[in-house]
Amino acid sequence: MTQVEKILNHIQKNGSITQREAYLDYGIQSFHRRLSDIREMGVRLLPVQKVHPTTGQEYTRYFIAGSKANGKPVKAA
């Protein structure tokens, strides 16, 4: 299974993915390059900025545009 397939499977199963999840779960170091590969395939990704509740650190969670996140439809920008 390719890294792109791993990322897409993770998003389909869990709804979204972060760079940290891709690295820890799958050893993907070139996360943003893989996101570019996914976009080149015609998949629209929706980046959502988040803040970690404990550390206050900002991070980005990636959804597939048009999918459901937290029970609400996600609209592409």
Rank of each mutant, 00 (worst) to 15 (best):
residue 1 M to T: 07
residue 2 T to K: 07
residue 3 Q to W: 04
residue 3 Q to Y: 12
residue 4 V to F: 01
residue 4 V to H: 00
residue 5 E to V: 07
residue 6 K to T: 10
residue 6 K to Y: 06
residue 6 K to N: 11
residue 6 K to Q: 15
residue 8 L to K: 06
residue 10 H to Q: 12
residue 10 H to C: 05
residue 10 H to D: 14
residue 11 I to G: 13
residue 11 I to K: 07
residue 12 Q to M: 09
residue 14 N to M: 09
residue 14 N to T: 15
residue 15 G to N: 08
residue 16 S to C: 13
residue 16 S to L: 03
residue 16 S to I: 01
residue 16 S to P: 01
residue 17 I to Y: 00
residue 17 I to R: 00
residue 17 I to S: 01
residue 18 T to K: 00
residue 18 T to P: 05
residue 18 T to H: 00
residue 18 T to Y: 01
residue 19 Q to L: 08
residue 19 Q to I: 04
residue 19 Q to R: 09
residue 21 E to G: 06
residue 21 E to Y: 03
residue 22 A to F: 01
residue 22 A to Y: 00
residue 22 A to L: 06
residue 23 Y to L: 11
residue 23 Y to I: 04
residue 23 Y to A: 14
residue 24 L to G: 08
residue 24 L to R: 10
residue 24 L to Y: 11
residue 25 D to C: 02
residue 25 D to V: 03
residue 25 D to R: 02
residue 26 Y to M: 07
residue 26 Y to K: 02
residue 26 Y to E: 03
residue 27 G to R: 08
residue 27 G to M: 03
residue 28 I to C: 01
residue 28 I to P: 00
residue 29 Q to A: 11
residue 29 Q to S: 14
residue 29 Q to R: 06
residue 30 S to I: 03
residue 30 S to K: 09
residue 31 F to Q: 09
residue 33 R to A: 11
residue 33 R to T: 15
residue 33 R to W: 03
residue 33 R to H: 10
residue 34 R to P: 07
residue 35 L to F: 02
residue 35 L to Y: 00
residue 36 S to C: 12
residue 36 S to G: 08
residue 37 D to E: 12
residue 38 I to N: 02
residue 39 R to W: 02
residue 39 R to V: 11
residue 39 R to H: 07
residue 40 E to F: 08
residue 40 E to C: 05
residue 40 E to W: 02
residue 40 E to T: 10
residue 41 M to R: 11
residue 42 G to Y: 08
residue 42 G to F: 11
residue 43 V to M: 05
residue 44 R to Q: 12
residue 44 R to M: 07
residue 44 R to W: 05
residue 45 L to Q: 09
residue 45 L to H: 07
residue 45 L to Y: 01
residue 47 P to S: 10
residue 47 P to W: 02
residue 47 P to V: 11
residue 48 V to P: 00
residue 48 V to N: 12
residue 49 Q to I: 04
residue 49 Q to A: 13
residue 50 K to F: 13
residue 50 K to H: 15
residue 51 V to S: 12
residue 51 V to A: 13
residue 51 V to E: 15
residue 51 V to R: 14
residue 52 H to R: 00
residue 52 H to G: 06
residue 52 H to K: 05
residue 53 P to V: 07
residue 53 P to I: 06
residue 54 T to L: 01
residue 54 T to N: 02
residue 54 T to Q: 04
residue 54 T to F: 01
residue 55 T to R: 05
residue 56 G to C: 06
residue 56 G to T: 01
residue 57 Q to P: 01
residue 57 Q to N: 15
residue 58 E to H: 06
residue 58 E to F: 03
residue 58 E to V: 03
residue 59 Y to L: 08
residue 59 Y to E: 08
residue 59 Y to S: 10
residue 60 T to K: 04
residue 61 R to M: 14
residue 62 Y to F: 15
residue 62 Y to N: 13
residue 63 F to A: 09
residue 63 F to M: 10
residue 64 I to H: 02
residue 64 I to C: 13
residue 65 A to T: 15
residue 65 A to K: 03
residue 66 G to E: 07
residue 67 S to T: 13
residue 67 S to L: 05
residue 67 S to C: 08
residue 67 S to G: 11
residue 67 S to A: 14
residue 68 K to P: 01
residue 68 K to N: 11
residue 70 N to Q: 08
residue 71 G to N: 12
residue 71 G to Y: 03
residue 72 K to E: 15
residue 72 K to M: 12
residue 72 K to D: 10
residue 73 P to Q: 12
residue 73 P to G: 14
residue 74 V to G: 10
residue 76 A to Q: 09
residue 76 A to M: 09
residue 77 A to M: 06
residue 77 A to P: 09
